[in-house]
Design a protein around this nucleic acid. Sequence first.
DNA 1: ATGGCTGAGCTACTCAGA
Length: 258
Amino acid sequence: MKIISWNVNSVRARVNNIKDYIKLAKPDILLLQEIKTQNENFPFEEFSKIGYESYVNGQKSYNGVAIISKIEIKNIEKNFINDNFKQSRIITAELKLKKKEIELINIYVPNGNPVDTEKYEYKKDWLKKFISNIKKKIQRKSNILIAGDFNIIPEEIDVHDFKRYENDALGRLEIRKKYRELINLGFRDVYRFKNKTKQEYTFWDYFAGSWQKNYGMRIDHFLISNNLIENIKSININKKPRSKEKPSDHTPIELEII
DNA sequence: ATGGCTGAGCTACTCAGA
């Protein structure tokens, strides 16, 4: 089974890129972040025409997440955490592997910049609530896959110039500690587990030739319950979509799980 | 390097992203 996560930076501006990519990558499930549209304007038909059903937690202009699937998924929910700012940043579902049931959690974590503002506090609160609810979820369900745009640079190796980000909302120790706290509940960062020293990125700024200079960062992640790590066949950051015309600033991360 | 570029909403310009 192929599960892919991609922050598309507007689903409507990117619908042709996304469809072209789906035809090549053939995911079973595609997790989207930053769709930047409310549900009624989501291009459901564009995806149903190529065999995918869409489940959407949208919002006008900003944020928004979706699950696009060609296999059956159940119990779609959009209220995993209580978001006081009423931002659409999470959608969850259940899916069946050959032997196991998995809780699938698609997230778009707040950016948090500039630091020392209410935006930064919102990011910290959001992560605190998220971790707390994962803790509760683990009591009942042991097979969990968390995927999406975490807006967290886990370690120095995960960004081209760490010094520039060590006091940024993506790289601050306080935020990276939240990531570790989450992992310490019983998860593996799948990419880093499979690639101990590799330096690859999932995001490059649009400006200042960041893509051409490979000034990027790894902020899109798959976290999987420790007991499921043996089920991972491969994980791959696919840089091709970032090189296309009218690209998203993020590129997809592709997971194969048995 | 607190700028650079891109998208949404709207139709001039601001907000947000990372």
